[in-house]
Design a protein around this nucleic acid. Sequence first.
DNA 1: TATGAATGAGGCTTCATTCAT
DNA 2: TATGAATGAAGCCTCATTCAT
Lengths: 209, 209, 209, 209
Amino acid sequence: MNRHSYFHIFLGGDELVKKDKPKYKQIVDAAVIVIAENGYHQAQVSKIAKQAGVADGTIYLYFKNKEDILISVFQEKMGMFVEKLEHILTKEVSASEKLRLMIESHFGLLSGDLHLAIVTQLELRQSNHEIRMKINGVLREYLLQMDKILVKGMEDGEFDKDMDIRLARQMVFGTMDETITTWVMNDHKYDLVDLAPKVHRLLMKGMRA
Amino acid sequence: MNRHSYFHIFLGGDELVKKDKPKYKQIVDAAVIVIAENGYHQAQVSKIAKQAGVADGTIYLYFKNKEDILISVFQEKMGMFVEKLEHILTKEVSASEKLRLMIESHFGLLSGDLHLAIVTQLELRQSNHEIRMKINGVLREYLLQMDKILVKGMEDGEFDKDMDIRLARQMVFGTMDETITTWVMNDHKYDLVDLAPKVHRLLMKGMRA
Amino acid sequence: MNRHSYFHIFLGGDELVKKDKPKYKQIVDAAVIVIAENGYHQAQVSKIAKQAGVADGTIYLYFKNKEDILISVFQEKMGMFVEKLEHILTKEVSASEKLRLMIESHFGLLSGDLHLAIVTQLELRQSNHEIRMKINGVLREYLLQMDKILVKGMEDGEFDKDMDIRLARQMVFGTMDETITTWVMNDHKYDLVDLAPKVHRLLMKGMRA
Amino acid sequence: MNRHSYFHIFLGGDELVKKDKPKYKQIVDAAVIVIAENGYHQAQVSKIAKQAGVADGTIYLYFKNKEDILISVFQEKMGMFVEKLEHILTKEVSASEKLRLMIESHFGLLSGDLHLAIVTQLELRQSNHEIRMKINGVLREYLLQMDKILVKGMEDGEFDKDMDIRLARQMVFGTMDETITTWVMNDHKYDLVDLAPKVHRLLMKGMRA
DNA sequence: TATGAATGAGGCTTCATTCAT
DNA sequence: TATGAATGAAGCCTCATTCAT
């Protein structure tokens, strides 16, 4: 069971066909680069088209409008995170170890794609209310998976049984998010993945039984 | 020592004169209301002028441009937080207690001004790269004060001496920020200040010696 | 003598061959339906192609461009009117009776094809100058036949000998056109053919000797 | 009682103020010229602005959007016709004479403004459904006045008492319209006003008792 | 013949800023 | 100081047409 099976429920066949065509990915990848290099508000459709090596009009064969491109960027890329997380969840290890793997994996993915890191941590947050709400919908999926780790940890007695799970989630996500954003804003001067064990230790200390 | 002394370093006498005139505050307050009620991208200068009860052109007698209004909003309002924090720092209490007071005070200020909460947590984050960088400059002042609490706590043996102070700060700020944002996005359905002790306990657990 | 002989003068053999192929008529008929149902400005080539059951590109095997489709619609359909009129002209009846038959036949054809009525009375008039000029060229053929009735009526002493023939033609055509357009704009609420005798009587009164 | 009093009923003071400013008329007049000289579909807002001697954005201080310009053109100009007609209606003359005056006046106004004639007879008819419906609303006012002449003529025994008033109106308007359009399409080669008596005679013959 | 994916030119509208009064 | 009418740059999207298959 991976995210593809998840999305099968919601998307018609049509969309899936389009998403599987090479130009769809080409355009999504181009959007990430253009947004990262020019900033959200300077990421014109024409720039994305040029970066993708297609005509402006071609964009609209694959996306309903500009907003649709941006949401798709988040969906496609966030999908990677969810997939990783789902994979981690299947492993036969402790909740603490899962948490560590999640942080490491999350940091690792963004370390490996600096453009993507800029886009998700800084640029996409400049989008308007409507787009952000749709992005939040995608994010929720990730947070739901994250909750599973926390619940398991509490059930197994690794984490504090009286912990408010929403608060804990906010601490975990907020700390990770803040850590990554600080790293991005400092121009990736230091190694983000190196911070993972420390972040893990700090968070575990806050949550352990 | 108050925040005015801090800004004396950066601002020329001209601005100070302007900032003391009633219309300056009128416009800043109008901006908060307009942004909160219309969203960042629908907060046109003309709307702010109308809300402030002045002509469009008058805005430009007090602010260099629109960007200047937005940064001033953050500066003026963030100033309140820094002042509170400076006040807390002078108290003769433990670092843990200072942390508790900071969280409570921070949550309290935003609970008391829902418009401001919307603006700082959601809307102002939609601003472009340049504005956000300037906002971060203002924010840094707050984080520097926050660091003093952490350092004191480590020196006094209340907090873990081997803690990475930057990481700890990211955890504290990230958790608070995520908690507030979640509260705002849930339409202030529950009482934010009530969460302060829990957040404090969680963070303390993560940081204590 | 039928309209084909008329068009022989203007059209090369190529077009004739194409016009006899089933897809040519398929596309023209599809255009009428699409224009009537979507309006002139929403009648994209792709919609016409879909309605006709052919690929977009196939359209261009039968028509030079979109303009050519629209003119062909008018040509093909207006041809029906000219044919009917030519048939009426051969009858051995008075000019007044011919006029009556013409009105009745004209009203009858449009009553029987509401799509066509919408297209000729409302939608095709939204076309640009150039197309309308070409449409007028086709219309002229109809008006020339109409003139024959008027001339005959004047020669036979049925119509006023001193009548300005151009004015009379404008009255006849203008009245018919206005009557049909009003009927179309009133959503065919009443029976158009029922109005034919009244229109005939009114026009005859204006023209008789 | 003139049309201003009529519109007072429908328009708020705001609109009236705008309509009285010189730039409003400047833009409406520019629109007539640009549409007449370039055709409806080539009448870009930027062209109208340039012709009016204002910036593109200025247009939008006086008009909601492009559609609003076009409807205003018709409203403002058609207003002249309605005013003339209302004036004619107050005269103490026979219905036949009123009809003559109406035709002469209508032809005269368009003869005196060739641009306007092109716009109303040819170009504005290319507008889309929605705009045409709004234009028809304005036109209705004119036709209502015209009906008054017909009713009076029937009451006074000048016109056929059994005449279908709607058909009669369609004949009168259709004939006038067709006559003017033919004149415009023939590049005003002949004098339109000279045709008025003939048109009047023809229509009277069709309608008289 | 037939297809349909790809092309790319073109225009309405918004809104931050200016400047004459 | 204060006004607010005027400015004009800038970008998303549509759709007729082409052309490789």
